[in-house]
Design a protein around this nucleic acid. Sequence first.
DNA 1: ATAAAGTGACTTTTT
DNA 2: GTCACTTTAT
Length: 728
Amino acid sequence: MDLLSGLNSAQRQAVTAGNGPVLVLAGPGSGKTRVLTHRAAYLVGHVAVPPYRIMAVTFTNKAAREMRGRIETVLGGSLRGLTIGTFHSICARLLRREAAHLPVTSDFVIFDESDQVALAKQALRDLDLDEKQYRPQSMLNAISKAKNELITPEAFRAETYFAEIAGRVYARYQALLHENNALDFDDLLMGIVMLFDDHPDVLAKYQQQYEHILVDEFQDTNTAQYAMLRQLAAVNRNLFAVGDVDQAIYRWRGADYRNVHRFQDDHPDALTVLLEQNYRSTQTILDAAMAVIDRNPNRTRKSLFTERGHGERLTVYEAYNEDEEAQFVVETIATLTMQDGLSPGECAVMYRTNAQSRAVEDAFIRAGLPYRLVGATRFYARREIKDLLAYLRLVHNPADSVSLARVLNVPPRGIGPKTIEALQACAAANGVPMGDILRGLGQEPPAEVQLAVTGKALKALADFGRQLNYWHTARAELSVVQLMDVILDQIGYHNYLNDGTDEGLDRWDNVVELRGVAAESPDAHLTGFLEEVSLVSDVDNLAEDGQAPTLLTLHAAKGLEFPVVFILGLDDGILPHQRSFDDPEQMAEERRLMYVGLTRAKDRLYLLRAFRRTQYGESDVSQPSRFLEDIPDHLVAGHTPRRTGRKANVASAYARATTWDGGSKPAAAQPVVLRFRTGQRVNHSSFGEGIVIESKASGGDEIVSIAFEAVGLKRLAASMANLELLEG
DNA sequence: ATAAAGTGACTTTTT
DNA sequence: GTCACTTTAT
């Protein structure tokens, strides 16, 4: 039947597999999504499995959306009842349904990273721990790691002093989450596994319902996710997993590609299908990618092949610095567009770290060309978006004290830290959330509370409480958009953002954009809207019809493909990243990251590096990436001198730089007159007297290092610090 | 209660 | 260099 007609034999074998566990090891571009969607369609269309008995799990909403669409296309009908979504969204849905067994109610909110930090800080304060000494972020890392490994606060075992502290913070943090009627991302996964463990009847219900479970990107599952899959598939044993250990790049997030091997150990009878034929790249690109990945130890070799022919050889280019590296990208894209009739949207620029995007953005801006940037400051992490969402979450769940603390004085309404402290104390004394105290104050007549706050501040609190009450009541009859408008209007948010700067205008645009998100689903209720926005990521919003080149990290590039790919920063220390040098496991992951990048390209691949690179404000000479050395010479064309002398490179780079932009370079060469010299005595208004150790120009300012008698060595910007030159 | 100055961190970040 | 955050000065 035509459902199978477009598949090669390996793909067909996987799609039509009978009952029992199936593991599909799919190389890049081998049609793994195709296999997954056709498998689902096959089950529904051929085996007559009702859609509601299938669960398909992905890691991103985008992947889930696409899969649903593609299954529907193959089947030519809608798939009502099919459970398809990310691990997190599916878990959230199930947890809400089974909330009776949870420490939170069914309308719990999901705390994101910054909420988590706020809560971790609170936990540290509650335990009288110094947040300088125990950084909230490292506490959260430990907590997240524990949750991914399904370790509860009670089961948390401390071997070290740090872990002992982390364990205590974990317990307090968890209690705070529940007080806020909130769960974090990791709780969604661990919560499900615990729920299933503690309530076999609940588990049995879902085990029966889900006759088939399909999983994408299986190499990226963590312990909790794997445990959940095992639980659900324990009875029917129809677990269909697709993955590629060579594309495992999320170890640092708790993912463990060894789950692929575990799957084979746990299911000795599993049908394993290897997909090696590539439908994306030229053979040259595949050969380069294999040359890189084959150096990783302990892996089963895959022989990727294509029928697309050899295509063009790769271009390796060594630029003088990151600006020239970016310039090369812009120029090359311009040339390809004009000479080869390529659309700029078919090009992607990939890099290891977000910081690298700046030079590229600058180059595009200088050339007056548009680009699309994925990631960086994520939309939902922006201050204005978080503010507005915090308001909505507070209206939805007055117990959410993290959101309350965020918006209590935003925009400023005369509620300072003293007042907040008093409110917190009052809430703690009465054992109720701060939101309830506020709403009590906003009642007519105000509720009686013991609150150490004076007239003006008290009025501010009561006013805010009144607004909160109003919104809380109004939320039932207003749409999300209407509620947003009411809140924005009443708090004067537009006015607050509009501070006359361009940034203020941008921020308001973002607010309008969020309003647009809400307007897209006018019938959605507040709960649904909040859940949707708390589970989205940036890649989810990457439009398909882009006319401009895409700038993104290698991590964000996974799962995507582009006719032309530029990989930047092939320097030792960047890719592979410095932090992976002393850990072979991490180094192997860097190599996989490179592999992922290489295999995104369909036709052309450009590998770039810079001889000199400015990082953290310091310019340093760098060595070529060791991965670059692994690519055989015969796959490379247009090799700029790489192992030849550095001087020639520098000279040619300068020559190019001058011919390209006759003087339009950014004002890096602004002369700075140095006022201070080593050995001079100076006086600073607060640090007192000291001796100048060093003075140099940097970033258009004079940076002076001074050894102060009272406070030791400091680095100050001469234009900022009020330095007085003393005699001597 | 804000604004300016100083400090310190800084890889990636599917949800 | 840039961001977030804290301390200090107004």
